[in-house]
Design a protein around this nucleic acid. Structure first.
Lengths: 105, 105
DNA sequence: TGGTTAATTAGATTTATTTCTAAATATCCC
DNA sequence: GGGATATTTAGAAATAAATCTAATTAACCA
C-alpha cells in the first residue's frame, strides 16, 4: 500500500506544512511541535504517519529526535504521475464528434 | 483546500484505478461501476469525490453520464512537488559532521 | 540519584470516510 | 404515458482519522 499511505499522508494540511519546514532543514520533533497550534502528541502522531509513508526519517540524537525529509519517495509520486499521463498520450485521440463505444476487455 | 481534496482523493486505491481507466478513454458511470466489485452508489460516490477534487469532469449524454480525466490539476501536484524540492535545493548543504542549530525565524 | 526536558504511547472522543440497501430522478423507447 | 435503463441521493452502519489529556519512557545534568 505504498501509494495509498503516501497520498493519505499528503492529504493533510498540517503534514504538508511539516514537510515544507523539513524541506528547509532538519528539525527536532519538539521544534516542529512548537511551530503548530496543536498538542505534542498530535504532532508526534502526524510525524509517525509521515514516517510510515516513507516521507520522513528520524534519528535519535541524545534526548532529541531529529526528523528529516526522505526525498526518495517523491520518485514514487512522479512515477505514478508519469504512468497516468503516459497512458493518456498513448491512446489515439478520437476525431471530433466521433463516438467511442469500445471499452477494451 | 485544493491540494487537500486532491491528495485525499488520490489516497484511495479504487479512485486511482478509476483514474487509470479514464486515462485510457472516457467512460460512462455505469461502465466504470461494472469494472469494480462494489455497488453503483459506492462508485458514484467515488466519482463525486474525484470530481470535487477536480480530477475528473462529467458530461451528461442522453441517459448516460460520461466521465473524463481532467489533466489540468496534475499541474497542481507537480507544482507542489517542485516547490518542495526547490526549497530543498535552496538550502546550503551543511558540511559533513557539521551541526545545524539555526532554524531560521 | 532525582529532577527536568524531550518525545511517545494509551485511551477516549469527535468527526470523516467507506460502504451498503432502498428510494428518487432522469432519460429513452414503444 | 409507462416501463426499462442509468445514475444519483438518502440514510444507516462500520471503520478510520484527528485530536486531546494523562501517563510513560528516555536522556540529560547537577
Amino acid at each position: 500500500m505504498g501509494l495509498n499511505a503516501l497520498f493519505k499522508a499528503l492529504g493533510d494540511e498540517t503534514r504538508r506544512e511539516i514537510l515544507r519546514r523539513l524541506a528547509r532543514g532538519d528539525m527536532a520533533a519538539g521544534e516542529i511541535a512548537a511551530a503548530f497550534d496543536l498538542s505534542w502528541p498530535t504532532i508526534s502522531h502526524h510525524l509517525s504517519v509521515l514516517k510510515e509513508a516513507g516521507l520522513v526519517q528520524d534519528e535519535k540524537k541524545g534526548q532529541y529526535v531529529i526528523y528529516s525529509l526522505n526525498t526518495t519517495v517523491f520518485q514514487d509520486i512522479a512515477g505514478w504521475l508519469f504512468d497516468l499521463l503516459g497512458t493518456i498520450t498513448e491512446r489515439q485521440p478520437a476525431k471530433k464528434g466521433e463516438a467511442r463505444k469500445e471499452n477494451g476487455k
